[in-house]
Design a protein around this nucleic acid. Structure first.
Lengths: 261, 261
DNA sequence: CCCTGTGAACTCATTCACAGCC
DNA sequence: GGCTGTGAATGAGTTCACAGGG
Protein backbone atom coordinates (compact mmCIF):
# COMPACT_ATOMS: atom_id res chain seq x y z
CA UNK A 1 0.00 0.00 0.00
CA UNK A 2 1.13 3.44 -0.66
CA UNK A 3 1.08 6.37 1.58
CA UNK A 4 -1.74 8.50 2.70
CA UNK A 5 -4.68 8.24 0.54
CA UNK A 6 -4.25 5.31 -1.67
CA UNK A 7 -7.64 3.92 -2.23
CA UNK A 8 -8.84 1.82 -5.00
CA UNK A 9 -11.91 3.74 -5.94
CA UNK A 10 -13.79 2.05 -8.65
CA UNK A 11 -12.38 -1.18 -9.95
CA UNK A 12 -15.90 -2.30 -10.08
CA UNK A 13 -15.08 -4.84 -12.68
CA UNK A 14 -14.07 -8.10 -11.15
CA UNK A 15 -12.36 -7.70 -7.89
CA UNK A 16 -10.05 -10.33 -6.57
CA UNK A 17 -9.44 -9.65 -2.88
CA UNK A 18 -5.99 -8.38 -2.11
CA UNK A 19 -5.39 -11.21 0.33
CA UNK A 20 -6.12 -13.68 -2.42
CA UNK A 21 -3.79 -11.96 -4.86
CA UNK A 22 -1.03 -12.20 -2.29
CA UNK A 23 -1.48 -15.95 -2.13
CA UNK A 24 -1.64 -16.65 -5.83
CA UNK A 25 2.15 -16.64 -6.20
CA UNK A 26 2.29 -19.23 -3.46
CA UNK A 27 -0.13 -21.51 -5.24
CA UNK A 28 1.69 -20.93 -8.45
CA UNK A 29 4.96 -22.03 -6.95
CA UNK A 30 3.46 -25.18 -5.53
CA UNK A 31 1.76 -25.92 -8.83
CA UNK A 32 4.95 -25.38 -10.77
CA UNK A 33 6.69 -27.91 -8.58
CA UNK A 34 3.90 -30.40 -9.22
CA UNK A 35 4.04 -29.66 -12.88
CA UNK A 36 7.74 -30.44 -12.96
CA UNK A 37 7.01 -33.76 -11.40
CA UNK A 38 4.38 -34.30 -14.08
CA UNK A 39 1.57 -34.59 -11.59
CA UNK A 40 -1.58 -34.18 -13.66
CA UNK A 41 -4.15 -33.21 -11.06
CA UNK A 42 -4.22 -32.14 -7.46
CA UNK A 43 -6.92 -31.79 -4.83
CA UNK A 44 -7.47 -28.64 -2.84
CA UNK A 45 -6.31 -30.49 0.22
CA UNK A 46 -2.99 -31.52 -1.28
CA UNK A 47 -2.28 -28.22 -2.92
CA UNK A 48 -3.20 -26.34 0.21
CA UNK A 49 -0.75 -28.41 2.20
CA UNK A 50 1.99 -27.72 -0.32
CA UNK A 51 1.29 -24.02 -0.22
CA UNK A 52 0.97 -23.86 3.52
CA UNK A 53 -2.64 -22.73 3.76
CA UNK A 54 -5.86 -24.52 4.59
CA UNK A 55 -7.99 -25.99 1.90
CA UNK A 56 -11.10 -23.93 2.50
CA UNK A 57 -9.14 -20.79 1.93
CA UNK A 58 -7.59 -22.18 -1.20
CA UNK A 59 -10.93 -23.15 -2.66
CA UNK A 60 -12.36 -19.78 -1.85
CA UNK A 61 -9.39 -18.10 -3.46
CA UNK A 62 -9.78 -20.13 -6.61
CA UNK A 63 -13.47 -19.40 -6.71
CA UNK A 64 -12.62 -15.75 -7.35
CA UNK A 65 -10.72 -16.75 -10.45
CA UNK A 66 -13.49 -18.86 -11.86
CA UNK A 67 -14.66 -22.41 -11.72
CA UNK A 68 -11.59 -24.28 -12.67
CA UNK A 69 -11.39 -27.68 -11.07
CA UNK A 70 -13.51 -30.77 -11.34
CA UNK A 71 -15.70 -32.02 -8.54
CA UNK A 72 -14.71 -35.37 -7.25
CA UNK A 73 -11.33 -35.04 -8.90
CA UNK A 74 -9.46 -31.86 -8.20
CA UNK A 75 -7.62 -29.31 -10.28
CA UNK A 76 -5.74 -29.83 -13.49
CA UNK A 77 -2.22 -28.71 -12.68
CA UNK A 78 -1.18 -27.33 -16.06
CA UNK A 79 -4.43 -25.56 -16.54
CA UNK A 80 -4.23 -23.86 -13.19
CA UNK A 81 -0.62 -22.86 -13.73
CA UNK A 82 -1.69 -21.12 -16.87
CA UNK A 83 -4.73 -19.44 -15.39
CA UNK A 84 -2.91 -18.13 -12.36
CA UNK A 85 0.01 -16.97 -14.46
CA UNK A 86 -2.36 -15.10 -16.67
CA UNK A 87 -4.21 -13.60 -13.75
CA UNK A 88 -0.97 -12.38 -12.24
CA UNK A 89 0.17 -10.97 -15.52
CA UNK A 90 3.10 -13.31 -15.84
CA UNK A 91 2.39 -14.27 -19.39
CA UNK A 92 4.03 -11.06 -20.36
CA UNK A 93 7.55 -9.94 -19.79
CA UNK A 94 8.23 -7.32 -17.12
CA UNK A 95 11.44 -5.38 -17.42
CA UNK A 96 12.62 -4.33 -13.98
CA UNK A 97 15.18 -1.73 -12.97
CA UNK A 98 17.15 -1.95 -9.75
CA UNK A 99 18.35 1.33 -8.32
CA UNK A 100 21.11 1.26 -5.75
CA UNK A 101 23.71 -1.39 -6.45
CA UNK A 102 25.18 -2.00 -3.04
CA UNK A 103 25.31 -5.32 -1.33
CA UNK A 104 21.61 -5.84 -1.46
CA UNK A 105 21.09 -4.52 -4.97
CA UNK A 106 23.81 -6.78 -6.25
CA UNK A 107 22.34 -9.73 -4.40
CA UNK A 108 18.98 -9.09 -6.02
CA UNK A 109 20.54 -8.69 -9.43
CA UNK A 110 22.05 -12.11 -8.98
CA UNK A 111 18.90 -13.62 -7.60
CA UNK A 112 17.75 -16.39 -9.87
CA UNK A 113 14.12 -16.39 -8.89
CA UNK A 114 13.83 -13.17 -10.76
CA UNK A 115 13.92 -14.39 -14.27
CA UNK A 116 12.07 -17.55 -13.50
CA UNK A 117 8.71 -15.89 -13.58
CA UNK A 118 8.38 -13.24 -16.23
CA UNK A 119 10.69 -10.71 -14.67
CA UNK A 120 13.83 -9.54 -16.33
CA UNK A 121 16.47 -7.29 -14.88
CA UNK A 122 16.59 -4.65 -17.58
CA UNK A 123 18.85 -2.17 -15.88
CA UNK A 124 21.03 -1.57 -12.85
CA UNK A 125 21.40 2.01 -11.74
CA UNK A 126 23.66 3.56 -9.16
CA UNK A 127 24.63 7.05 -8.08
CA UNK A 128 28.30 6.25 -7.74
CA UNK A 129 30.10 7.31 -10.94
CA UNK A 130 32.86 4.83 -10.13
CA UNK A 131 30.40 2.00 -10.57
CA UNK A 132 29.23 3.03 -14.00
CA UNK A 133 30.19 0.39 -16.48
CA UNK A 134 31.01 -2.23 -13.89
CA UNK A 135 29.20 -5.40 -14.70
CA UNK A 136 27.06 -6.90 -11.96
CA UNK A 137 25.38 -10.18 -12.66
CA UNK A 138 26.40 -9.68 -16.26
CA UNK A 139 24.79 -6.29 -16.62
CA UNK A 140 26.67 -3.03 -16.75
CA UNK A 141 25.71 -0.59 -14.06
CA UNK A 142 24.52 2.76 -15.36
CA UNK A 143 24.59 6.11 -13.72
CA UNK A 144 21.65 7.78 -12.06
CA UNK A 145 21.96 10.76 -14.34
CA UNK A 146 20.55 8.65 -17.13
CA UNK A 147 17.73 7.22 -15.07
CA UNK A 148 15.03 8.87 -17.08
CA UNK A 149 16.30 7.65 -20.38
CA UNK A 150 17.01 4.16 -19.11
CA UNK A 151 13.52 3.75 -17.75
CA UNK A 152 11.74 4.93 -20.81
CA UNK A 153 14.00 3.24 -23.33
CA UNK A 154 13.46 -0.08 -21.64
CA UNK A 155 9.79 0.41 -20.98
CA UNK A 156 10.31 -0.25 -17.31
CA UNK A 157 7.19 0.01 -15.21
CA UNK A 158 8.47 -1.77 -12.12
CA UNK A 159 11.33 -0.32 -10.14
CA UNK A 160 13.22 -1.80 -7.23
CA UNK A 161 14.80 0.60 -4.75
CA UNK A 162 17.80 -0.64 -2.80
CA UNK A 163 19.45 2.66 -2.05
CA UNK A 164 20.31 4.00 1.37
CA UNK A 165 17.23 5.42 3.07
CA UNK A 166 18.27 9.00 2.51
CA UNK A 167 18.15 8.65 -1.25
CA UNK A 168 15.04 6.54 -1.53
CA UNK A 169 12.37 9.23 -1.80
CA UNK A 170 14.32 11.14 -4.38
CA UNK A 171 14.96 8.05 -6.45
CA UNK A 172 11.34 7.16 -6.10
CA UNK A 173 10.25 10.55 -7.40
CA UNK A 174 12.50 10.24 -10.38
CA UNK A 175 11.32 6.74 -11.16
CA UNK A 176 7.73 7.86 -11.00
CA UNK A 177 8.45 10.88 -13.14
CA UNK A 178 10.04 8.60 -15.69
CA UNK A 179 6.96 6.43 -15.88
CA UNK A 180 7.37 3.74 -13.28
CA UNK A 181 4.06 2.85 -11.66
CA UNK A 182 5.06 0.02 -9.33
CA UNK A 183 7.81 0.15 -6.79
CA UNK A 184 9.35 -2.44 -4.57
CA UNK A 185 11.10 -0.61 -1.78
CA UNK A 186 13.85 -2.20 0.27
CA UNK A 187 14.93 1.04 1.88
CA UNK A 188 13.67 1.56 5.39
CA UNK A 189 11.67 4.64 4.54
CA UNK A 190 8.07 5.51 3.96
CA UNK A 191 7.75 6.54 0.36
CA UNK A 192 5.09 8.90 -0.74
CA UNK A 193 3.87 8.52 -4.25
CA UNK A 194 1.06 9.95 -6.33
CA UNK A 195 -2.18 8.13 -6.67
CA UNK A 196 -2.04 5.27 -9.11
CA UNK A 197 1.44 4.19 -8.16
CA UNK A 198 1.76 1.02 -6.10
CA UNK A 199 4.43 0.61 -3.51
CA UNK A 200 5.30 -2.54 -1.66
CA UNK A 201 7.98 -2.57 0.93
CA UNK A 202 10.30 -5.23 2.15
CA UNK A 203 11.87 -4.37 5.42
CA UNK A 204 14.19 -6.72 7.19
CA UNK A 205 14.30 -4.72 10.33
CA UNK A 206 10.53 -4.63 10.66
CA UNK A 207 10.27 -8.38 10.22
CA UNK A 208 12.83 -8.96 12.91
CA UNK A 209 11.02 -6.63 15.26
CA UNK A 210 7.79 -8.49 14.75
CA UNK A 211 9.56 -11.74 15.51
CA UNK A 212 11.11 -10.20 18.59
CA UNK A 213 7.69 -9.22 19.82
CA UNK A 214 6.43 -12.78 19.62
CA UNK A 215 9.66 -14.13 20.96
CA UNK A 216 9.40 -11.93 23.98
CA UNK A 217 5.86 -12.99 24.54
CA UNK A 218 6.82 -16.65 24.41
CA UNK A 219 9.55 -16.06 26.93
CA UNK A 220 7.17 -14.24 29.18
CA UNK A 221 4.61 -16.97 29.02
CA UNK A 222 6.97 -19.68 30.13
CA UNK A 223 8.37 -17.42 32.78
CA UNK A 224 7.49 -20.00 35.37
CA UNK A 225 9.90 -22.84 35.17
CA UNK A 226 13.06 -22.68 33.18
CA UNK A 227 13.25 -19.52 31.17
CA UNK A 228 15.57 -19.17 28.31
CA UNK A 229 15.40 -15.41 28.61
CA UNK A 230 17.37 -14.39 25.57
CA UNK A 231 20.27 -12.53 26.95
CA UNK A 232 19.28 -9.15 28.09
CA UNK A 233 22.73 -7.72 27.95
CA UNK A 234 22.14 -4.67 29.91
CA UNK A 235 18.92 -3.54 31.38
CA UNK A 236 20.79 -0.70 32.89
CA UNK A 237 20.44 1.45 29.85
CA UNK A 238 19.24 4.76 31.10
CA UNK A 239 15.50 4.27 31.03
CA UNK A 240 14.72 7.08 28.65
CA UNK A 241 12.14 8.63 30.77
CA UNK A 242 9.64 11.25 30.63
CA UNK A 243 6.12 10.74 31.31
CA UNK A 244 2.78 12.05 30.69
CA UNK A 245 2.12 13.96 33.85
CA UNK A 246 -0.71 12.31 35.58
CA UNK A 247 -3.28 9.85 34.61
CA UNK A 248 -3.28 6.26 33.63
CA UNK A 249 -0.53 4.40 32.01
CA UNK A 250 0.21 1.24 30.17
CA UNK A 251 -1.06 -2.13 31.19
CA UNK A 252 2.22 -3.38 32.38
CA UNK A 253 5.23 -1.58 33.68
CA UNK A 254 5.68 2.08 33.63
CA UNK A 255 9.15 3.41 33.40
CA UNK A 256 11.50 3.78 36.28
CA UNK A 257 11.89 7.39 37.16
CA UNK A 258 15.16 8.83 36.08
CA UNK A 259 16.27 11.54 33.87
CA UNK A 260 17.76 10.87 30.53
CA UNK A 261 20.42 12.74 28.71
CA UNK B 1 6.76 -31.67 17.04
CA UNK B 2 7.81 -30.15 20.23
CA UNK B 3 4.83 -28.18 21.23
CA UNK B 4 3.93 -30.15 24.27
CA UNK B 5 1.38 -28.60 26.43
CA UNK B 6 -1.30 -26.21 25.45
CA UNK B 7 -0.75 -25.01 21.97
CA UNK B 8 -0.58 -21.31 21.77
CA UNK B 9 -4.05 -20.11 20.90
CA UNK B 10 -2.52 -17.04 19.45
CA UNK B 11 -2.54 -14.12 21.70
CA UNK B 12 -4.50 -15.01 24.68
CA UNK B 13 -3.44 -12.87 27.52
CA UNK B 14 -3.15 -9.26 26.69
CA UNK B 15 -3.81 -9.21 23.03
CA UNK B 16 -2.36 -6.63 20.77
CA UNK B 17 -3.78 -7.28 17.32
CA UNK B 18 -1.30 -8.68 14.87
CA UNK B 19 -1.94 -5.85 12.44
CA UNK B 20 -1.02 -3.40 15.14
CA UNK B 21 2.15 -5.23 16.05
CA UNK B 22 3.21 -5.07 12.43
CA UNK B 23 2.89 -1.30 12.48
CA UNK B 24 4.68 -0.63 15.73
CA UNK B 25 8.11 -0.80 14.10
CA UNK B 26 6.92 1.80 11.64
CA UNK B 27 5.87 4.15 14.39
CA UNK B 28 9.07 3.47 16.21
CA UNK B 29 11.12 4.44 13.23
CA UNK B 30 9.23 7.68 12.75
CA UNK B 31 9.51 8.46 16.45
CA UNK B 32 13.22 7.76 16.47
CA UNK B 33 13.68 10.25 13.67
CA UNK B 34 11.73 12.85 15.64
CA UNK B 35 13.72 12.05 18.72
CA UNK B 36 16.95 12.67 16.86
CA UNK B 37 15.64 16.05 15.88
CA UNK B 38 14.81 16.64 19.52
CA UNK B 39 11.14 17.08 18.84
CA UNK B 40 9.48 16.77 22.25
CA UNK B 41 5.91 15.94 21.36
CA UNK B 42 3.96 14.92 18.32
CA UNK B 43 0.28 14.71 17.45
CA UNK B 44 -1.36 11.62 16.09
CA UNK B 45 -1.87 13.46 12.84
CA UNK B 46 1.79 14.33 12.40
CA UNK B 47 3.10 10.99 13.47
CA UNK B 48 0.63 9.19 11.28
CA UNK B 49 1.78 11.17 8.29
CA UNK B 50 5.39 10.33 9.03
CA UNK B 51 4.58 6.66 9.35
CA UNK B 52 2.36 6.55 6.31
CA UNK B 53 -0.90 5.59 7.98
CA UNK B 54 -3.98 7.53 8.92
CA UNK B 55 -4.36 9.06 12.31
CA UNK B 56 -7.41 7.12 13.43
CA UNK B 57 -5.56 3.90 12.92
CA UNK B 58 -2.57 5.16 14.78
CA UNK B 59 -4.62 6.27 17.76
CA UNK B 60 -6.41 2.97 17.85
CA UNK B 61 -3.11 1.14 17.69
CA UNK B 62 -1.72 3.14 20.57
CA UNK B 63 -4.84 2.57 22.57
CA UNK B 64 -3.94 -1.11 22.72
CA UNK B 65 -0.67 -0.24 24.38
CA UNK B 66 -2.22 1.96 26.99
CA UNK B 67 -3.12 5.57 27.45
CA UNK B 68 0.06 7.33 26.66
CA UNK B 69 -0.47 10.72 25.14
CA UNK B 70 -2.01 13.87 26.45
CA UNK B 71 -5.28 15.26 25.17
CA UNK B 72 -4.98 18.57 23.53
CA UNK B 73 -1.24 18.11 23.21
CA UNK B 74 -0.12 14.87 21.66
CA UNK B 75 2.40 12.20 22.53
CA UNK B 76 5.69 12.58 24.30
CA UNK B 77 8.23 11.34 21.79
CA UNK B 78 10.82 9.87 24.16
CA UNK B 79 8.22 8.23 26.26
CA UNK B 80 6.58 6.56 23.31
CA UNK B 81 9.90 5.42 21.92
CA UNK B 82 10.54 3.69 25.17
CA UNK B 83 7.10 2.13 25.50
CA UNK B 84 7.04 0.81 21.97
CA UNK B 85 10.59 -0.50 22.25
CA UNK B 86 9.66 -2.31 25.37
CA UNK B 87 6.49 -3.69 23.87
CA UNK B 88 8.44 -5.01 20.91
CA UNK B 89 11.07 -6.50 23.15
CA UNK B 90 13.81 -4.26 21.86
CA UNK B 91 15.09 -3.30 25.26
CA UNK B 92 16.88 -6.55 25.26
CA UNK B 93 19.55 -7.81 22.95
CA UNK B 94 18.66 -10.42 20.36
CA UNK B 95 21.50 -12.47 18.97
CA UNK B 96 20.68 -13.53 15.43
CA UNK B 97 22.24 -16.22 13.27
CA UNK B 98 22.27 -16.04 9.50
CA UNK B 99 22.45 -19.34 7.69
CA UNK B 100 23.48 -19.33 4.05
CA UNK B 101 26.15 -16.78 3.29
CA UNK B 102 25.67 -16.18 -0.38
CA UNK B 103 25.00 -12.83 -1.96
CA UNK B 104 21.93 -12.21 0.08
CA UNK B 105 23.26 -13.56 3.34
CA UNK B 106 26.33 -11.40 3.01
CA UNK B 107 24.20 -8.39 2.18
CA UNK B 108 22.15 -8.92 5.30
CA UNK B 109 25.23 -9.41 7.42
CA UNK B 110 26.41 -6.04 6.22
CA UNK B 111 23.07 -4.40 6.66
CA UNK B 112 23.36 -1.61 9.16
CA UNK B 113 19.76 -1.49 10.21
CA UNK B 114 20.36 -4.71 11.99
CA UNK B 115 22.32 -3.54 14.96
CA UNK B 116 20.45 -0.30 15.23
CA UNK B 117 17.56 -1.85 17.05
CA UNK B 118 18.52 -4.51 19.50
CA UNK B 119 19.61 -7.10 16.97
CA UNK B 120 23.11 -8.39 16.78
CA UNK B 121 24.54 -10.73 14.20
CA UNK B 122 25.93 -13.38 16.47
CA UNK B 123 26.90 -15.94 13.86
CA UNK B 124 27.19 -16.58 10.14
CA UNK B 125 26.80 -20.16 9.04
CA UNK B 126 27.36 -21.75 5.67
CA UNK B 127 27.50 -25.27 4.28
CA UNK B 128 30.49 -24.58 2.09
CA UNK B 129 33.65 -25.74 3.89
CA UNK B 130 35.66 -23.36 1.77
CA UNK B 131 33.90 -20.43 3.36
CA UNK B 132 34.64 -21.45 6.91
CA UNK B 133 36.85 -18.87 8.52
CA UNK B 134 36.28 -16.27 5.86
CA UNK B 135 35.27 -13.04 7.47
CA UNK B 136 32.08 -11.44 6.21
CA UNK B 137 31.12 -8.12 7.68
CA UNK B 138 33.83 -8.69 10.22
CA UNK B 139 32.51 -12.02 11.40
CA UNK B 140 34.07 -15.34 10.56
CA UNK B 141 31.77 -17.74 8.76
CA UNK B 142 31.31 -21.05 10.53
CA UNK B 143 30.42 -24.39 9.10
CA UNK B 144 26.98 -25.94 9.24
CA UNK B 145 28.34 -28.96 11.07
CA UNK B 146 28.64 -26.82 14.17
CA UNK B 147 25.21 -25.28 13.85
CA UNK B 148 23.89 -26.85 16.99
CA UNK B 149 26.73 -25.71 19.13
CA UNK B 150 26.78 -22.24 17.64
CA UNK B 151 23.12 -21.68 18.29
CA UNK B 152 23.15 -22.84 21.85
CA UNK B 153 26.43 -21.25 22.82
CA UNK B 154 25.20 -17.91 21.62
CA UNK B 155 21.70 -18.28 22.95
CA UNK B 156 20.29 -17.58 19.53
CA UNK B 157 16.51 -17.71 19.36
CA UNK B 158 16.07 -15.94 16.03
CA UNK B 159 17.45 -17.46 12.85
CA UNK B 160 17.61 -16.03 9.36
CA UNK B 161 17.60 -18.44 6.45
CA UNK B 162 19.19 -17.28 3.22
CA UNK B 163 20.09 -20.65 1.77
CA UNK B 164 19.01 -21.99 -1.61
CA UNK B 165 15.44 -23.29 -1.44
CA UNK B 166 16.49 -26.90 -1.46
CA UNK B 167 18.35 -26.58 1.80
CA UNK B 168 15.92 -24.36 3.62
CA UNK B 169 13.72 -26.96 5.29
CA UNK B 170 16.63 -28.97 6.50
CA UNK B 171 18.36 -25.92 7.91
CA UNK B 172 15.11 -24.90 9.49
CA UNK B 173 14.74 -28.27 11.19
CA UNK B 174 18.22 -28.06 12.57
CA UNK B 175 17.73 -24.53 13.81
CA UNK B 176 14.55 -25.52 15.57
CA UNK B 177 16.16 -28.59 17.05
CA UNK B 178 18.92 -26.39 18.39
CA UNK B 179 16.45 -24.13 20.12
CA UNK B 180 15.54 -21.41 17.64
CA UNK B 181 11.91 -20.37 17.95
CA UNK B 182 11.65 -17.58 15.41
CA UNK B 183 12.69 -17.78 11.82
CA UNK B 184 12.95 -15.22 9.10
CA UNK B 185 12.94 -17.09 5.82
CA UNK B 186 14.27 -15.58 2.61
CA UNK B 187 14.25 -18.83 0.70
CA UNK B 188 11.31 -19.28 -1.63
CA UNK B 189 9.94 -22.29 0.16
CA UNK B 190 7.14 -23.05 2.53
CA UNK B 191 8.72 -24.09 5.78
CA UNK B 192 6.95 -26.38 8.14
CA UNK B 193 7.73 -25.96 11.77
CA UNK B 194 6.39 -27.32 15.01
CA UNK B 195 3.86 -25.41 16.98
CA UNK B 196 5.31 -22.60 18.95
CA UNK B 197 7.82 -21.60 16.32
CA UNK B 198 7.14 -18.43 14.37
CA UNK B 199 8.10 -18.09 10.77
CA UNK B 200 7.99 -14.97 8.70
CA UNK B 201 8.92 -14.99 5.09
CA UNK B 202 10.35 -12.41 2.80
CA UNK B 203 9.98 -13.29 -0.81
CA UNK B 204 11.12 -11.01 -3.53
CA UNK B 205 9.50 -12.98 -6.25
CA UNK B 206 6.11 -12.93 -4.56
CA UNK B 207 6.26 -9.19 -4.08
CA UNK B 208 7.06 -8.67 -7.72
CA UNK B 209 4.21 -10.90 -8.77
CA UNK B 210 1.79 -8.93 -6.67
CA UNK B 211 3.03 -5.75 -8.27
CA UNK B 212 2.69 -7.30 -11.69
CA UNK B 213 -0.90 -8.13 -10.95
CA UNK B 214 -1.75 -4.53 -10.16
CA UNK B 215 0.36 -3.30 -12.99
CA UNK B 216 -1.55 -5.45 -15.39
CA UNK B 217 -4.80 -4.24 -13.97
CA UNK B 218 -3.83 -0.63 -14.43
CA UNK B 219 -2.89 -1.28 -18.02
CA UNK B 220 -6.14 -3.07 -18.59
CA UNK B 221 -8.19 -0.27 -17.17
CA UNK B 222 -6.75 2.28 -19.50
CA UNK B 223 -7.52 0.16 -22.49
CA UNK B 224 -10.67 2.04 -23.24
CA UNK B 225 -10.54 1.95 -26.96
CA UNK B 226 -9.38 -1.28 -28.51
CA UNK B 227 -8.13 -4.47 -27.02
CA UNK B 228 -6.02 -4.30 -23.93
CA UNK B 229 -2.71 -6.06 -23.55
CA UNK B 230 -0.13 -3.38 -22.84
CA UNK B 231 3.16 -4.83 -23.95
CA UNK B 232 2.88 -8.52 -24.12
CA UNK B 233 6.22 -9.21 -25.65
CA UNK B 234 5.46 -12.61 -26.97
CA UNK B 235 2.18 -14.31 -26.60
CA UNK B 236 3.52 -17.14 -28.64
CA UNK B 237 4.57 -19.19 -25.68
CA UNK B 238 2.93 -22.53 -26.13
CA UNK B 239 -0.30 -21.95 -24.30
CA UNK B 240 0.05 -24.75 -21.83
CA UNK B 241 -3.31 -26.15 -22.39
CA UNK B 242 -5.53 -28.63 -20.91
CA UNK B 243 -8.94 -27.94 -19.81
CA UNK B 244 -11.57 -29.01 -17.57
CA UNK B 245 -13.83 -30.96 -19.87
CA UNK B 246 -17.07 -29.14 -19.91
CA UNK B 247 -18.68 -26.59 -17.79
CA UNK B 248 -17.99 -23.05 -16.97
CA UNK B 249 -14.70 -21.35 -17.00
CA UNK B 250 -12.99 -18.23 -15.90
CA UNK B 251 -14.52 -14.84 -16.25
CA UNK B 252 -12.23 -13.76 -18.96
CA UNK B 253 -10.29 -15.70 -21.51
CA UNK B 254 -10.08 -19.40 -21.67
CA UNK B 255 -7.04 -20.96 -23.17
CA UNK B 256 -6.41 -21.56 -26.82
CA UNK B 257 -6.73 -25.22 -27.58
CA UNK B 258 -3.46 -27.01 -28.01
CA UNK B 259 -1.77 -29.88 -26.41
CA UNK B 260 1.13 -29.49 -24.10
CA UNK B 261 4.00 -31.79 -23.47
C1' DC C 1 -18.78 -41.69 -2.07
C1' DC C 2 -15.17 -37.97 -3.57
C1' DC C 3 -14.14 -33.27 -3.97
C1' DT C 4 -15.36 -28.59 -5.58
C1' DG C 5 -17.80 -24.25 -5.09
C1' DT C 6 -20.17 -21.07 -2.18
C1' DG C 7 -23.70 -18.85 0.94
C1' DA C 8 -23.67 -17.84 5.75
C1' DA C 9 -21.49 -17.19 10.18
C1' DC C 10 -17.80 -15.44 12.33
C1' DT C 11 -13.48 -13.17 13.39
C1' DC C 12 -10.26 -9.62 12.62
C1' DA C 13 -9.18 -4.83 10.98
C1' DT C 14 -10.26 -0.17 9.63
C1' DT C 15 -12.82 3.91 9.80
C1' DC C 16 -16.16 7.07 11.80
C1' DA C 17 -17.54 10.29 14.95
C1' DC C 18 -17.73 12.18 19.22
C1' DA C 19 -17.30 12.27 24.37
C1' DG C 20 -13.86 13.58 27.56
C1' DC C 21 -9.94 15.98 29.03
C1' DC C 22 -6.24 19.35 28.66
C1' DG D 1 -9.93 25.06 20.84
C1' DG D 2 -7.21 21.03 20.02
C1' DC D 3 -6.25 16.36 20.36
C1' DT D 4 -6.64 11.85 22.49
C1' DG D 5 -9.16 7.64 23.42
C1' DT D 6 -12.77 4.63 22.25
C1' DG D 7 -17.44 2.65 21.45
C1' DA D 8 -20.14 1.77 17.36
C1' DA D 9 -20.42 1.06 12.36
C1' DT D 10 -18.50 -0.73 8.49
C1' DG D 11 -15.66 -3.59 5.75
C1' DA D 12 -12.27 -7.38 4.71
C1' DG D 13 -10.84 -11.93 5.30
C1' DT D 14 -11.42 -16.57 7.14
C1' DT D 15 -13.74 -20.61 8.40
C1' DC D 16 -17.79 -23.52 8.46
C1' DA D 17 -20.73 -26.65 6.56
C1' DC D 18 -23.15 -28.38 3.06
C1' DA D 19 -25.42 -28.39 -1.58
C1' DG D 20 -24.46 -30.29 -5.85
C1' DG D 21 -21.89 -32.18 -9.75
C1' DG D 22 -18.55 -35.98 -11.12
Amino acid sequence: MATGRTHRPATRSRGIPEATVARLPLYLRALTALSERSVPTVSSEELAAAAGVNSAKLRKDFSYLGSYGTRGVGYDVEYLVYQISRELGLTQDWPVAIVGIGNLGAALANYGGFASRGFRVAALIDADPAMAGTPVAGIAVQHTDDLDRIISENGVSIGVITTPPGAAQQVCDRLVAAGVTSILNFAPTVLSVPDGVDVRKVDLSIELQILAFHEQRKAGEEAAADGRAPVDTDADEAPPMRATPTGRKGPDGDMPAVMPA
